[in-house]
Design a binder for these strands. Structure first.
Length: 478
RNA sequence: GCCGAGGUGACAGAGUGGCUAAUGUGACCGCCUGCAGAGCGGUUUUCCGGGAGUUCGAAUCUUCCCCUCGGCACCA
């Protein structure tokens, strides 16, 4: 079975074959750091994190690059508005972003370049474009990409025509009177006196929005990427512009072999975005839900579909995920108890079967929804076997190992989630819990249900859930 | 105007030509339990937007229609 991916470039499913053997250069557009990131960003970065982890799982050597855009109009405007130093502001939100990603167990990129640290390289690229004749500078100190020089190339990704673009833009295209052509986009923007800028052959200025990704993906990856990804909203104009710039810079085609785009996070079917003001920051959501739950919520939908966010939908995800967590708990508990030793080929077989279906699902354009569907079946069968059939200790350990193998891809369980079952709430040491369970056991032996239930209620109030079973009483954090 | 996504049970959401259409949530019933929880089993009555066509066979392919949503020089 080969890995197949949906390529925005061709709008088709394609076999995934990197340029060079098992080596994969993967570039994901990072955030513009002018504010805390919202759940829509989390959706994107968690999705690509899973894709990256899966590629690694399948034996690829992945070089994962994701940038930080720390200079652009939005950052400048926000700093002005807040009366803060621009660099202090972008540093603050860069840190906030990295913190969020860490909390969500998104693996750190192999390279995470910042635009402000690559100004010389950007200037050099702009010069190359001017020398090649695909860019021009103006008397105002701006440099534009000359679209008329490669008009036939516009729309390779977005499948738009110049005519359609001009008709639909509804006057939203910036009117800069030094542009040769209305659709030309800026590579270098002159900075007015008193605004952040760097010296360049065209005067003081700063990079345009698209050029940084071209420059940094080449520096840390390759002139030709295997995968370039980002949100669907970046297809046009951002990724389109990147293709034009990069290909005319290097003369190599294609700039990226595969283009992957994730769907949006919506609220009441509307896209969550800062400009609409209908967003929840990652930090706000992390206050109420665990990282595993948030990841599960995201991964429980295929990356190209929109996810409609609501408190209810997250709670539903939390309940669904708990089924899987309960299986882990059941297996761990069985390990701690005397158990029915016996033929364990059922579990071994089940693990192998599940692994196979999981790989098939993931190979189909990273179909995490189907993969998790398989996981629920696995979970149900494990629960059944653990409580009804003979099984060996080794087989139980294999189950846990398999679960952590999956967790390495999806990251929906995580170590601290396993630990959550034994995490001790503050002010309630474990011996105290065991003591109370002991007291309750004695009450139960004497059929003193009132006392037994009172102890159970008391523990519940403190966040400990008691579960009686045939082989003793289990407790876990509620 | 141009480009795109989608309509599957109460809800969410897989499946893209072929046994009884995954899976989860919710609801209900049963087993287990002192009760509860968790778990297991079952039920949720023709669930594939509508018409026409292709086919031995269509949720899946073709065509027309209806409806919803997104993008179009801010954006993950």
């Amino acid at each position: 079975m080969v890995l197949r991916v949906y390529n925005t470039l061709t709008r088709e499913m394609e076999n995934f074959i990197p340029f060079c053997g098992k080596k994969v250069n993967m570039y994901i557009c990072g955030p513009t750091v002018y504010d805390h990131c919202h759940l829509g960003h989390a959706r994107s970065y968690v999705s690509f994190d899973v894709i990256r982890r899966y590629l690694i799982y399948r034996g690829y050597d992945v070089n994962y690059i994701s940038n930080i855009t720390d200079i652009d109009d939005k950052v400048i405007d926000r700093a002005k508005e807040k009366g803060e130093d621009l660099f202090a502001l972008s540093r603050k939100f860069t840190e906030s972003f990295i913190e969020d990603m860490k909390a969500l167990r998104v693996l750190a990129p192999d390279a995470q370049p910042k635009v402000t640290e690559h100004i010389p390289e950007i200037i050099e690229a702009v010069e190359t474009l001017i020398n090649k004749g695909t860019a021009y500078s103006t008397h105002k100190g701006n440099v534009y990409y000359d679209l008329m020089r490669s008009e036939e190339k516009i729309g390779t990704l977005s499948h738009q025509t110049v005519k359609g673009l001009l008709e639909g833009s509804g006057g939203r295209i910036e009117v800069e009177n030094d542009k040769k052509y209305q659709l030309d986009f800026v590579l270098w923007k002159s900075a007015p006196q008193g605004e952040t800028g760097w010296e360049s052959p065209w005067g003081r200025g700063r990079p345009g929005w698209h050029i940084e990704c071209s420059v940094m993906s080449m520096k840390y990856g390759s002139q030709q990427l295997d995968i370039h990804g980002g949100g669907m909203d970046l297809i046009f104009p951002h990724h389109e512009a990147e293709i034009l710039q990069s290909e005319s810079c290097t003369g190599k085609h294609p700039f990226s072999k595969y283009w992957l785009h994730n769907g949006f996070l919506t609220i009441n079917k509307e896209k969550m975005s800062k400009s609409l003001g209908n967003f929840f920051t990652i930090k706000e959501v992390l206050d109420k839900f665990s990282p595993g739950t948030i990841r599960f919520f995201i991964v429980y939908t295929h990356y190209r579909n929109n996810i409609d966010f609501s408190g209810e939908s997250l709670e539903e995800a939390a309940r669904a995920r708990k089924r899987l967590l309960n299986t882990i708990s059941n297996v761990k508990h069985a390990l701690n108890e005397a158990h029915k030793d016996g033929n364990d080929c059922r579990l071994t077989e089940l693990i192998n079967e599940t692994r196979e279906t999981l790989i098939n699902s993931m190979d189909d354009d990273f179909n995490t929804r189907e993969a998790i569907g398989n996981l629920f079946v696995f979970s149900r069968k494990v629960n059944y076997i653990v409580s009804n059939e003979a099984h060996s200790r080794a087989a139980l350990e294999d189950v846990l190992e398999f679960i952590s193998e999956i967790d390495g891809i999806l990251g929906i369980f995580g170590e601290e989630e396993h630990e959550a079952y034994k995490n001790i709430p503050e002010g309630l040491p474990e011996y105290k819990i065991m003591e109370m369970i002991g007291l309750r056991d004695r009450a139960r032996e004497g059929k003193d249900w009132v006392k037994a239930d009172a102890i159970r209620d008391e523990l519940k109030e403190k966040g400990i859930i008691i579960e009686d079973g045939n082989d003793g009483t289990k407790w876990r954090k509620g």
